[in-house]
Design a protein around this nucleic acid. Structure first.
Length: 273
DNA sequence: AACGAGACCTGGCAGC
DNA sequence: TGCTGCCAGGTCTCGT
């Protein structure tokens, strides 16, 4: 499920755990994208969860006590979700990783496809975080920045905005949605966007993600119970997943092409190259 | 250097 | 009913 809005919603759902102290760690299936470090079983207990932050689609759990300090980095991959449990319910098939706290509550990662990640960082200077582009909802991501970042890139604009070096957090759903709202054809060569188009695209990326964040928050309100909701089910998309259905603006059929090996949805009438 | 393709996994669904 | 093939929200790594 996780695009940026759901990762942020997940982070917010985890906030009640801040201030708690770790009792134990369970690693049931360590082979995610990278192996979950076994030393977490010794490292985390007795540490206090100080803060929860997010960078791109990474959730950073800051742990510390007077002698040890570090960050548990979580990534949900394609199919991961975090559960906040009031006690250690029996784990199900894809519940790979638990952090249990001294009050009995449990933070649990479920990830059927195992594209997610759990890593331990001594500090935030890590290769995964170092060269990321700006956050889409922050001011640094503006039309001038995007226009410069696209530079002489010849690749399709849809692929460009999904590149985390250009801007983080724009996944496959919202890339299509943002481009529709900005009336830009997804196959347009990135370097061909003028400043005006970059203005529209930046604005619509922000709008699309903010709308999804608002909707995600409500659709996932009870996500942290014993079982998660499918997520996104309350959302209405303009183009994503609507192949052959009428465009909500002009009525023409929505098209579906492969771009960068990903499904891409657009309206050939509303979106210009 | 920039870009495209492959790789990592499991589950769900359409079609036969 | 059961099999096969295809598709899915991400992103690192490798080859051209």
């Amino acid at each position: 499920m996780p695009e940026l809005p759901e990762v942020e919603t997940t982070r917010r759902g985890m906030l009640p755990m801040v201030g708690k102290t770790v009792k134990s760690v369970s690693i049931r299936h360590p082979t995610l994208r990278w192996p979950i470090p076994q030393h977490l079983i010794e490292t985390l207990p007795e540490l206090n969860l100080k803060a929860l932050t997010r960078r791109a689609k990474y959730i950073l759990c800051e742990f510390g006590n007077p002698t040890t300090h570090g960050f548990l980095l979580l990534h949900l991959g394609m199919s991961g979700r975090m559960q906040v449990l009031d006690r250690a319910y029996p784990p199900e098939k894809h519940d790979h990783f638990d952090v249990a706290f001294t009050d009995g509550s449990v933070l649990r990662l479920r990830d059927p496809r195992r594209f997610g990640a759990v890593l331990w960082l001594e500090n935030k200077n890590h290769a995964l975080l170092d060269s990321l582009g700006p956050e889409p909802l922050e001011e640094a991501f503006d039309a001038d920045y995007l226009h410069t970042a696209l530079g002489n890139k010849t690749l399709a604009i849809k692929n460009a905005i999904m590149d985390a070096y250009v801007v983080v957090g724009v996944g496959n759903i919202y890339a299509s949605e943002s481009l529709f709202r900005a009336r830009i054809h997804p196959e347009t060569s990135a370097k061909k966007l003028n400043l005006k188009q970059c203005e529209r695209l930046v604005a619509e990326i922000k709008n699309t993600l903010q709308d999804a964040l608002d909707a995600g928050g409500s659709s996932l309100r009870d996500f942290f119970g014993t079982d998660g909701n499918p997520g996104y089910f309350q959302q209405e998309y303009f183009v994503y997943g609507r192949t052959g259905e009428p465009c909500k603006v002009c009525g023409k059929a929505i098209k579906n092409i492969r771009l960068g090996q990903r499904s891409t949805f657009f309206c050939a009438h509303c979106q210009k190259r």
